[in-house]
Design a protein around this nucleic acid. Structure first.
Length: 880
RNA sequence: GGGCGGAUAGCUCAGUGGGAGAGCAUCGGCCUUACAAGCCGGGGGUCAGAGGUUCGAAUCCUCUUCCGCCCA
């Protein structure tokens, strides 16, 4: 057997094994019809992206699920890909152009798109390479991109069908406009943030000169586009003014005073200005009252001709000038400080502008209804289920989805307008002439589709739809989607809608929604805060296994992850622990011969560790099934470190030393438990487990295609565990005395154990060599109802008493103090238990097993106390 | 303003009706040939506050305070 280096060094190993797995084709499904299928589609990262810690968590979880299922006998497909990320990618390339002093308009549409493709070819694979370093076992032979040919065909098919079904329409509506990205945004692409602003009170005179109405506004410049003033119909203050007319200051337009229930009488003066072309609520109000729409601001955020003297001004300059003019002309009543919630572009963070424009929309209600029902009826399960409420809320009040974007990088909308007869043509193949009038003078829509339009099709477009492919048949619906809540609506809800509509079936059965990764103080990680933990740096520093295990161990459901580098370092110690345990086993495999493990032939510690292993396997499987990755990870951690290493490896030294058959059996058990643990750990730590597994005697080509451990009932034994617990208790008791008296670890201590049970005596006698090894004792004496040794330190256990007779070493006063403290603890406990038992209501109403348990406890405590008191008496005799 | 989540050891968090737990940190002792990235032992908590339900509450209900997130 080769000897391993003293410390685990992951450098070089990770690349080596990843290449091996890929070459062996383990990442590809076998398409074996006899095997159950398991499929996960990756949430496609942006091509512009590089791996951040959120990706690391997201993909670690997916890889754990996927490796687990693959080992457990499923035919597994984890389908990877990237997203073309319209606005983000276009921004990146435009910035590059800007450095050359050019704009995309200098290049023109065709050349610009070529340039983006070039950029994608050069840099778009970075995140894929980073995912490989994390260990992601994706089937790279099926790598997709939202703009590739197949997916573009799917997008086109979906668009045309929705148009034919009347679910897509085009029209003039108010939308969120980003003046910097120069495009429309969907409602959910807007982030609302509080901004310190003002509330201006403006005097609007009545046309007949009989008075005035004061309105309050946070956006005075939009008054140029006012087409009404509105009040609440039941507002006594204004009731007599309804229907009368106002002369708009600065530009003199006459506008009516209307009554509308949406007006909040509490806001400002209770009278509000109505600007239908530049405010969402006003837009709705204008439609109800047939008010005209006056567009005073354009797509660049500049004032239009409609703004009269303000035409050409930037929106912020216009505000200043309007306020100044109002003040100069005596229309400004007062100015208050006011915090406004302003929409910001989720891509570039600049203030978005509600704007009236011609856009394409998808009707959401008919699509949302079945998507809501799918979750309500449990066809799709959200985990943790607390997200259901949020999902339903959003689905119930869903509004039509603005899908057109005024950018170039994306799927161009397949709609043409006949320049002669005005017909709109939406077809699967590019048209040559107008089907209505035969004209060849057609113009294609300039806009492209929202990026999320193509990602909404991801679970079936990536499998080959609209073709009827083998993959689609085998893997749709997919099994699990792993994502974070911030794209629940952007993406998940839309996939459900599109999946149901076009596949007639849900896209996935389960949606696992994981936490957000924050820094150690609970703040979001961001470049500007300078608190980002770069997963690639962490991988280089601590290894991918340590990073993965940390993320898994911290991934408790329903709570954000507070990550700090020290946690990763901590779990790297665990990786090293595993390494050294394997190193120990390998160093002791001399003369190894395989044996079939039979419980009855094994000593107590071996039977114990095998039983504990089964419990651990069960727990890990259960927790994985429940998506409780932290619990699964911690179960292995605890078993491996604190049961296998702390107890079994130590105990095994007894048998290894003994030699012969005892040694053979111990070697077999060590190897069995280690090898099984490695398989159990593999989904969490693929690299170190492979390296060690390959170094051990094994069957098969790779741990990643070895079977996932199953519980072997024949090794489960509660009696064995109880016996071993007794031995461990005795060992811990002796160690405690050793520590209290500062006795050197190598000093052998004499020990006397007293018990009233013959069976306890038998167990301890049988395992006295083990106790001597683990506790560092000698001349172990075990008696039933024997004489207490004089001048001994003692510990009272439930079934036995442990004495270390050290006449000249025992500090009697200190020992009395120690025992008195123990006594006090038990007395309090006993008093509580007795009080409970003396309560007739408790005896009567509590379940019987609880009462029985309490009674046993009372007996045990009484017995322990009695012995403690006797020991105290003995000590006091010496003292006097 | 509406909704959701959280408050348990110094820190991060498990625990969801019947003996307050883990990891890390800390303290004491050990270089005991797998591992000092380690081993052994210990200390540390009116489970945010107040009321209620119950034989019994960290756990269920109500209110309060504070923190986070989402929506308007």
């Amino acid at each position: 057997m080769k000897e391993l280096p003293k410390a685990y060094d992951f450098r070089g190993l990770e690349e080596k094994w990843y290449r091996y797995w890929e070459e062996q084709g383990y990442f590809r499904p076998k398409l074996d019809p006899r095997k159950p299928k398991f499929c996960v589609v990756i949430p496609p990262p942006n091509v512009t992206g590089s791996l951040h810690i959120g990706h690391a968590l997201n993909n670690t979880i997916q890889d754990i699920l996927v490796r687990y299922r693959r080992m457990d006998g499923y035919d597994v497909l984890w389908l990877p890909g990237t997203d073309h990320a319209g606005i983000a990618t276009q921004n990146v390339v435009e910035r590059e152009l800007a450095r050359e002093g050019k704009t995309r308009h200098d290049l023109g549409r065709e050349a610009f798109l070529q340039r983006v493709w070039q950029w994608k070819e050069r840099f778009g694979n970075r995140i894929i390479e980073q995912l490989k370093r994390l260990g992601a076992s994706c089937d790279w032979s099926r790598l997709r991109f939202t703009m590739d040919e197949g997916l573009s065909r799917a997008v086109r098919e979906v668009f045309v069908r929705l148009w034919e079904e009347g679910l897509i329409y085009r029209g003039d509506y108010i939308i969120n406009w980003c003046p910097r990205c120069h495009t429309a945004l969907a409602d959910i692409e807007v982030e609302h943030k509080p901004i310190a602003g003002n509330l201006w009170y403006i005097r609007y005179p009545l046309t007949d000169g009989s008075g005035e109405v004061v309105v309050a506004t946070t956006r005075p410049e939009t008054m140029l586009g006012d087409t009404a003033v509105a009040v609440h119909p039941e507002d006594e203050r204004y009731r007599n003014l309804i229907g009368r007319k106002i002369k708009l200051p600065l530009i003199g337009r006459e506008i009516p005073i209307i009554a509308d229930k949406s007006v909040d009488p509490e806001f400002g003066t209770g009278a509000v200005k109505v600007t239908p072309a530049h405010d969402f609520a006003d837009f709705e109000m204008a439609r109800r009252h047939n008010l005209p729409f006056v567009k005073i601001m354009d797509e660049n955020g500049r004032m239009t001709e409609e703004a009269g003297p303000y035409a050409g001004l930037d929106r912020f300059e216009a505000r200043k000038k309007v306020v100044a003019d109002l003040e100069a002309q005596g229309f400004l009543v007062k100015t208050e400080d006011y915090e406004v919630m302003l929409g910001h572009c989720y891509r570039c963070d600049c203030v978005v502008e509600p704007l009236l424009s011609k856009q394409w929309f998808v009707r959401m209600k008919p699509l949302a209804q079945p998507a809501t029902a799918a979750v309500e009826n449990g066809f799709i399960r959200l985990v943790p289920e607390q997200w259901n409420n949020l999902y339903f809320d959003w689905m119930y009040k869903i509004r039509d989805w603005c899908i057109s974007r005024q950018i170039w990088w994306g799927h161009r909308i397949p709609a043409w307008t006949c320049q002669d007869c005005g017909k709109t043509i939406v077809v699967r193949e590019d048209p040559e002439s107008c089907p209505e009038c035969g004209s060849k003078n057609l113009r294609q829509e300039e806009d492209v589709l929202d990026t999320w339009f193509s990602s909404a099709l991801w679970p079936f477009s990536t499998l080959g739809w609209p073709e009827k492919t083998e993959d689609l048949k085998a893997f749709y619906p997919t099994s699990v989607l792993v994502t974070s809540f911030d794209i629940l609506f952007f993406w998940v809800a839309r996939m459900i809608m599109m999946g149901l509509h076009f596949m007639g079936n849900i896209p996935f059965r389960t949606v696992y929604i994981h936490a957000l990764v924050r820094d150690e103080k609970g703040q979001k990680m961001s470049k500007s805060r300078g608190n980002v933990i770069d997963p690639v740096v962490m991988i280089e520093k601590y290894g991918a296994d340590a990073l993965r295990f940390t993320l898994a161990a911290l991934a408790a459901q329903g709570r954000d992850i507070k990550l700090s580098e020290s946690r990763i370092e901590g779990f790297k110690h665990f990786v090293n622990k595993i390494w050294n345990a394997a190193r120990f086993v390998l160093m002791n495999l001399e003369d190894y011969e395989p044996r079939e493990l039979k419980s009855e032939a094994l000593p107590l510690p071996s039977r114990w560790i095998l039983s504990r292993l089964q419990k651990t396997i069960q727990k890990v499987r259960d927790r994985l099934e429940a998506y409780e990755f932290d619990q699964a990870a911690l179960a292995i951690y605890h078993f491996f470190w604190h049961e296998f290493c702390d107890w079994y490896v130590e105990a095994s030294k007894l048998y290894l030393r003994e030699g012969g058959e005892a040694k053979r059996l111990a070697q077999n058990v060590l190897l069995h438990v280690l090898e099984t643990s490695l398989r159990l750990l593999h989904p969490f730590m693929p690299f170190v487990t492979e390296e060690l597994w390959q170094a051990l005697p094994h069957e098969g080509q790779s741990i990643m295609v070895a079977p996932y451990p199953k519980v072997e009932e024949k090794f489960v034994s509660p009696e064995t565990e109880k016996e071993m617990d007794l031995v461990r208790e005795v060992v811990v008791a002796v160690r405690g005395i050793r520590a209290d008296y500062r006795l050197h670890p190598t000093r052998k201590l004499p020990v006397v154990i007293l018990t009233s049970e013959e069976s306890v005596k038998e167990v301890l006698r049988e395992h006295s060599p083990l106790i001597e090894l683990l506790a560092g004792t000698e001349a172990l004496q075990i008696e039933v109802s024997g004489e207490r040794p004089r001048g001994a330190a003692s510990v009272v256990l439930t079934e036995a008493e442990v004495f270390v007779p050290l006449a000249n070493l025992v500090d009697v006063a200190q020992e009395i103090k120690r025992l008195s403290k123990e006594k006090e603890k038990y007395s309090k406990e006993l008093a509580r238990v007795r009080a409970r038992l003396e309560n007739p209501n408790f005896i009567e109403k509590a379940p019987e097993e609880v009462v029985t348990k309490e009674k046993i406890r009372a007996e045990e405590l009484t017995e322990k106390l009695k012995r403690l008191e006797e020991n105290l008496e003995r000590l006091k005799e010496i003292e006097t």
